[in-house]
Amino acid sequence: MADVLIALALLLVAATATAAVAVRDPARQALVLSVLGLTLTLLFTVLQAPDVALSQLAVGSALTPLLILLSVRKARRRSLDQVRAEKEAEEGGT
């Protein structure tokens, strides 16, 4: 009967991982990734590996979102400014 729990957790992980791939915007992807971390925590716990579950949780719940969002912010700012600079150059040229 314990297999039912493992099967449910596996299905949840598979569904969440698929959703993480299907969502395209990196910031929104980070959100699905957090939920994927949570479902993985459940999977590891029902597989009786709480040490691994804790590792996943410690890294996945706050650290990974922070790293991803900070990188997204830096990258976006850079590309926004490039667009702005190109536009200005174009306007100046015409």
Binding site: P50, D51, A53, L54, S55, L57, A58, V59, A62, L63, L66
Partner: peptide, 16 residues
């Protein structure tokens, strides 16, 4: 369950 890695990450997250 737990240990140096897990606890270390939790403590570092706390500061942030």
């Amino acid at each position: 369950p737990g240990g140096g890695f897990q606890g270390g990450v939790v403590a570092a997250t706390a500061l942030h």
